[in-house]
Simulated assay, not measured.
Amino acid sequence: MARASLPITKLSDAGSPDPAETNGNPTDGHSLPNTGRTVLRVRNADATNPHTLTLVPPITVAGKRVEDTKVTIPAGATLSFGSLSTALYGSSTPINVDSAQLKLTAFEP
């Protein structure tokens, strides 16, 4: 199956309520619409085990694939990612997760 595109919540000066989280899909992965200003928030809902999020650069340099960015999210922790360069991560960033316990939300200013 194709990667599921994460919905983007637009932030405003009037305030924006937190959107519903998207459950991580370890089988098909996700794609993040990325402008370079997009913020990805990842919550590990597993109170016991850490889980891994992988940002997959869809580019090659001199014919070689650029190494993935793998981040371990500690049990019960939330991490936010931003300033994802479109030159490195593209305008539709592939994301892999190792568990549905990772909950994803994305924001755009």
Rank of each mutant, 00 (worst) to 15 (best):
A62D: 11
S5F: 09
P109H: 04
N44K: 01
K103S: 08
Q101Y: 05
S83N: 14
P58H: 07
A62S: 11
A75D: 00
P26V: 04
P50G: 11
L32T: 00
T48L: 13
F107G: 11
L32K: 00
N23A: 15
R41E: 15
P17D: 07
I95P: 01
I73K: 00
T52V: 14
D98W: 05
D18Q: 14
T93Y: 06
L104R: 02
F107I: 09
R41H: 09
P7F: 07
T86D: 05
G29I: 05
V71W: 01
P7Y: 08
A20K: 12
D28W: 11
A4I: 13
L104A: 03
A100C: 08
G29L: 07
L40E: 02
A4Q: 12
G29F: 10
P57A: 04
T105A: 14
D46A: 04
F107H: 14
G24H: 02
V71D: 04
I8M: 03
T9F: 00
S31D: 10
L40A: 03
P74G: 09
T86S: 09
G76S: 04
G15F: 03
D13V: 09
T48S: 15
T54V: 15
S83R: 15
R65G: 10
L11Y: 00
L53A: 05
S31G: 11
V97K: 02
A106W: 00
N44Q: 04
L104Q: 03
T78L: 04
T48P: 01
T72L: 07
D46T: 01
G82R: 07
T22S: 10
N34Y: 07
S83V: 11
F107M: 15
I73V: 12
G82Y: 03
I59N: 11
G63I: 05
K70N: 13
A14T: 12
G82E: 06
S92R: 11
V61M: 07
A20G: 09
P57V: 04
P50F: 04
S5I: 14
N49S: 14
D46Y: 00
P33G: 01
